[in-house]
């Protein structure tokens, strides 16, 4: 008991994020992410319904695309796995928050319709790729195989510019 938590906490803090101090709650979530990984072949968010198709669920692979926004607005992610330093330092109460996924997916669909997703700037030598998990930007011919900051896979990148 505790090793799973300690390893995850160390790994997470290396990427600039923080983990809830509720060891039992966190370990249960980590075990359930593992259950999803075995079930679907990818680490789907344990608190959202996965489809079984990775390409349809890219936004909800843990860490999900909504982590930053939830940390910004509430101080913790939907599952209450990741928290902000402010929540840790000030011992703020962690609670259940609304799931922004459905609204975000609808907004994304709308944006695609209006083709307003991507900014175009002429004369750039390389396209710019953005990691949807941590916001890392890379100007290079292709997105990197693995995000050098938060270590998620290439398919979590989007063409940004």
């Amino acid at each position: 008991m505790g090793k799973l938590y300690d390893d995850f906490k160390a790994k997470t803090e290396q990427t600039g994020y923080y983990v809830s101090t509720d060891v039992e709650f966190v370990e249960r979530l980590l075990e359930n992410i593992k259950v999803n990984e075995e079930r679907y072949g990818y680490p789907a968010c344990p608190c959202r319904l996965a489809s079984g198709k990775r390409e349809e669920d890219l936004d909800l692979l843990c860490p999900c695309d909504y982590r930053d926004e939830d940390l910004e607005e509430f101080g913790f992610c939907f599952c209450a796995l990741y928290v902000t330093k402010d929540v840790l330092d000030n011992n703020k109460k962690i609670h259940s928050i609304p799931d922004r996924r459905m609204k975000a997916l609808k907004a994304k669909k709308e944006a695609k319709k209006h083709d307003s997703e991507q900014i175009t700037i002429g004369g750039l030598q390389y396209p710019v790729w953005r990691c949807k998990v941590c916001g890392y930007l890379a100007a290079r011919p292709e997105a990197p195989e693995v995000c050098p900051i938060c270590h998620v896979d290439k398919d979590r990148f989007e063409r940004f510019i």
């Binding site: 709650f25 249960r28 359930n32 999803n36 344990p46 608190c47 959202r48 599952c79 209450a80």
Partner: peptide
């Protein structure tokens, strides 16, 4: 609920 979700439990 979901069998894997913390708040569901």
């Amino acid at each position: 609920g979901l069998s894997t979700c913390g708040w569901c439990k």
